[in-house]
Design a protein around this nucleic acid. Structure first.
Length: 291
DNA sequence: GTCCGGCAAG
DNA sequence: CTTGCTGGAC
């Protein structure tokens, strides 16, 4: 165990990806929380740029908590999943009500809107040095190959226990980054570079098994993206972001492939998510912006 | 076409 | 347990 930790951390010290939201030491917990929420289902390279601008605009929980929601949605453009922006602002407001500091323990972190098992542990480890393992798809794959378990079948509890057991308590934050960097650059889903892997001598997968092809993709391309609700929602929000703050836009008639009823339904769901507000006649504007 | 440093709600 | 949510890079 000790050998594996030392080997991976030594590799990390030389090969860490240079990402804007990483800190040498003394990380700002708020900055870490923002970066981890942005990274949910979003590739880290794209997060980095958006994160810089977002932190400049909302450097503290208080700054985000008091901002018009429309400003937050605009700052989120390009990241997708706008509900995360709404949840992050709600989390900021909860943090402010609780004294203004990002909580350190997993339970309190996970009680924040938009913060689940992964994000709570990532923040606890990276921002506060807690010896807990953050298990995302990446880490799940790496641990699965290391131990010989099937990542798709292993219960979350077992993966979590394995991840917790492996963490180097002296460098919990670096350990978290190291595992994810390994998964992103060496232990990739397809064609892993086992020859270059710093922990191959401990791995049950390296050099032995061929890479299993991913499970059948199913019929994914059957529906064109323009026909999905996601496309429609994105189109509506994009339109509202492009208009001066507080301006209302009326969406009558079809939009792309979508009938007027579908557009209304999308507006209603966006309103339910707190992303847009609808006035009495059904005109829409970004949430939290006055006319 | 695939894959993202997930989460909440049903 | 399953589903919806986004957008870009490769």
């Amino acid at each position: 165990m000790v050998g594996l930790r030392a080997a991976l951390l030594a590799w990390f010290d030389r090969n860490a990806r240079a990402l804007a939201f990483r800190f040498e030491r003394d990380p700002d917990p708020w900055a870490v929380l923002v970066s981890e929420v942005m990274a949910q289902q979003t590739q880290v390279a794209r997060v980095a740029e958006k994160w810089l601008a977002f932190m400049g605009r909302f450097p503290t929980p208080a700054a985000l908590a008091s901002a018009p929601t429309g400003d937050v949605i605009r700052a989120w453009q390009g990241l997708g999943y706008n509900r995360r922006a709404i949840d992050l602002q709600r989390a900021a407001r909860a943090i402010v009500l609780a004294g203004g500091r990002v909580p350190e323990d997993i339970d309190s972190l996970q009680a924040l809107p938009g913060v689940g098992p992964y994000t709570a542990r990532a923040v606890a480890a990276i921002a506060f040095g807690r010896p807990v393992g953050a298990v995302d798809v990446n880490v799940r794959r790496v641990l699965g190959r290391l131990t010989g378990a099937d990542p798709a079948a292993a219960p979350q509890r077992e993966m979590q226990a394995a991840a917790d057991a492996l963490v180097d308590p002296a460098r919990a934050g670096d350990w978290t980054h190291a595992l994810m960097d390994l998964g992103a650059t060496i232990c990739r889903p397809a064609r892993p570079e086992c020859d270059a892997c710093p922990v191959r001598t401990w791995c049950s997968f390296a050099g032995v098994a061929g890479v299993r092809p991913n499970p059948a993709p199913g019929r994914r391309g059957a529906v064109p993206f323009e026909a999905t609700t996601r496309w429609l929602r994105g189109r509506i929000v994009g339109r509202l972001c492009g208009v001066p703050p507080g301006t209302t836009v009326t969406f009558d008639g079809p939009l792309g492939l979508h009938a007027p009823e579908a557009v209304s339904a999308a507006l209603a769901s966006l309103a339910a998510d707190g992303i847009v507000e609808l006035d009495a006649v059904g005109a829409a504007r970004l949430a939290g912006e006055q006319a």
